[in-house]
Write a protein that binds this DNA or RNA. Structure first.
Lengths: 154, 154
DNA sequence: TATTTAGTTCATTTATTACTGAACTAAATG
DNA sequence: CATTTAGTTCAGTAATAAATGAACTAAATA
């Protein structure tokens, strides 16, 4: 097992831990450790020793999550894949979304709970306030980063 | 199906979506929408219509993740469960941990990628910088929240 | 227009994960 | 000290998700 092969399996396990298909993680592992942007379907299939169907399905998944980008080369009918430029934003957006979703669940839950003076009611309300706070603050954080990088690149 | 029963299944599906056992989500759903802190093993078993084994295992999981708290009542040998007071911190900590873990994976990956001048290398380095930024900023956010609440409560 | 290429789709197989229920432990009660 | 209570453990089963591989499509080439 080469260093890269070991790495690919490691990213696969990382992905699996978060309830996502291991093969999607392995594809990411390959793309992260690849020294080129021009990674074809067959490169993935051969290196990962997987079926066309699995590669196809997991590429589709990663594209839909904006984790990878697809590009073409003129005079070549193959598609090429690389880690997405905007995957950084997408990952934080996914976390934001999960915060919002969980906040909505908590709000709905304490609506059902009728004992408004109960300890748990008060505590869950506090959690909701915290999540609302995060919802306000995370966009600020993103702006802070953007401004930092605008001045850096220009 | 009562409103609470519907809600419990909803939280179960939410949990399942993130790759966690549906039953753990259902337990949380029950505790969030319960109007008391004194929710026993049997309350859970009966309302969720599940086996002792499943309740036991998923309580264990939620306790280990600090999502729920266990407490006793004197003169009573049953254990009681409620949503954890510190689950708000724990949830954000889990997100922080996943950011750190993914950053480490990216760092390891571009070490394997030898083409240091490649486009993807540059972009992944940028993602790593962003993650490092988040690692610095999130603790600040937590402090901001804490200070806000210290003055509020005192 | 026949053939090759590049990839998709989907039924089946395989692997993984979660749930059940019965046997068990350990502490409390009669 | 026998029984009940409260929960744990774990082998077997059920449910779910992922991977395979063959048949397919659609576009490009010969």
């Amino acid at each position: 097992m080469t260093q890269q092969e070991k790495y690919i399996e490691e990213v696969g396990l990382f992905y699996e831990k978060y309830g996502l298909p291991k093969m999607a993680g392995r594809i990411l592992g390959y793309l992260i450790s690849s020294n080129t942007d021009n990674n074809s379907f067959d490169d993935l299939k051969n290196t990962l020793k997987a079926s066309k169907g699995s590669i196809s399905g997991n590429i589709k998944l990663l594209l839909s999550q904006n984790m990878i980008d697809k590009h073409m080369i003129s005079g070549d009918r193959k598609s090429y894949y690389k880690i997405a430029i905007n995957s950084l934003e997408k990952l934080l957006e996914a976390k934001e979304k999960s915060i919002t979703e969980f906040k909505l669940i908590l709000e709905k839950g304490i609506d059902i709970n009728t004992n408004k003076d109960g300890v748990s009611h008060k505590e869950i309300s506090e959690i909701i306030d915290y999540y609302k706070f995060l919802e306000r603050e995370i966009p600020k954080l993103k702006n802070k980063w953007k401004q930092k990088n605008v001045t850096k690149t220009k």
